[in-house]
Nucleic acid binder design. Sequence first.
DNA 1: ACAAAAGTGTTGCGTATACACCCATGT
DNA 2: ACATGGGTGTATACGCAACACTTTTGT
Lengths: 248, 248
Amino acid sequence: MYSQKFLSSISIDCVIFGFHSNELKVLLLKMKESDGWMLPGGFVGLDQDLNKEASTVLEYRTGLADIFLRQFYVFGNVARAKTDHIDHLLAKGAIDPKAAKWFEQRFVSIGYYALVEYSKVKEPRLDYISEACTWMPMNELPPLLLDHGEILDKAHETLKKELYSQPIGLNLLPEEFTMTELQSLYETILQRTIDRRNFRRKMLSMKVLGDTGKRRTGLGHRSPILYTFDRAAYQTALEKGFQASAFF
Amino acid sequence: MYSQKFLSSISIDCVIFGFHSNELKVLLLKMKESDGWMLPGGFVGLDQDLNKEASTVLEYRTGLADIFLRQFYVFGNVARAKTDHIDHLLAKGAIDPKAAKWFEQRFVSIGYYALVEYSKVKEPRLDYISEACTWMPMNELPPLLLDHGEILDKAHETLKKELYSQPIGLNLLPEEFTMTELQSLYETILQRTIDRRNFRRKMLSMKVLGDTGKRRTGLGHRSPILYTFDRAAYQTALEKGFQASAFF
DNA sequence: ACAAAAGTGTTGCGTATACACCCATGT
DNA sequence: ACATGGGTGTATACGCAACACTTTTGT
């Protein structure tokens, strides 16, 4: 049973962001026998490191390993554990009654957010209490169960902040992309427009982009340059961060 | 017993920062029957909110309520729970053997850091396994048990980062202070020197300082102006943050 | 008078912002 | 040829960084 395999009272919730057709999307689970959606999550194996377990959840859902994944907040209010929907699931037979005790307990949930390349995720995997696992656009989110709406908001807020001190995009875009696509990603996350020319200058000054020499053709206009991320430079920028000393 | 009162597997560790005689200090517990020191911490009551419980720990140790207190990271590696020192404490009789099971379990610990006004903390309170609770300077830390050294480092690192996007000082300085004292706090946290004139200009431009009209006298030189924080402005700056849009 | 720290202003430089024109491509 | 988006440059403003002299106070 659960209690012999997992640490009790602790859960992990993952906000998995993807970017597709100019929209920021999140991977959500549609629960069986319920109108509500949830964030994919899991529990912590008795002999597993916490962060490792979070990437296991991620890998299970997306099939992707070595992905940008980061803790952003711990949700530990008593009130978050209104288990109405668990009762509902039990009543409907979606959860094994023997596991009821486990699911009815109060959980302190550690929130992680991940950035993944939309196109690399093939068929998000289901578990036995979910009837669907799909990308949902951030703009038109379905109703979320428990406090998952709040968790999602906080993740988005964190992502916005991180954008200012770190490069972002390596994990969200395909291998090769145009400057406009990169800008579109930034605009989507920040929810505002950015001047094209200034954006380009700023990005190039970061020295994390490599020009592939190639161009994307077939559009009804001038062919844009295809860029890649310079992995080494990107990694350095991630670790060191920007503008940490742009003060005093 | 513990397991009837607290969520299992979860602990809270608090890094409580204070500032005194130009040194950044941390409140640490000296353990009975051991050479090691620990961060003050606690567990989460079954019917208590997580953040609330963290401020309970803080209040218990310092006697202060309504203090700057923030989550900064969750420490959840399996390896962090080397319980050698627990065995030691048990052997020495410092822990009730009936509680052994509780203390021997693996904990995932939620790290909080707090900023408190050194002079407001009278006698840090002890518990039954600590023989001392005192302010220790960050520069000359004693040996810490478990992964508490790592936790402390991460807290300090976080504090440094936050300094760039938020005002800091309201919780660390006395009600009235000179510009030099404020600068000294910043220099101590950042571990570097700052130009006096630039610092003053920057601080005043933040509009969070109020001139009390008073001056500190009795020093062998020109009497410096005493400032206070404008609480309302400070609070706004905390919530909104600085330079969030100093990019694009 | 002297020592020690506080108060004050200016200049340069780099970076963010605002803004407009020409270029390449597919239809 | 034309429409559509891509590529490029310049001028301005603001903020950070560097830097030196005068003022106040206690001894």
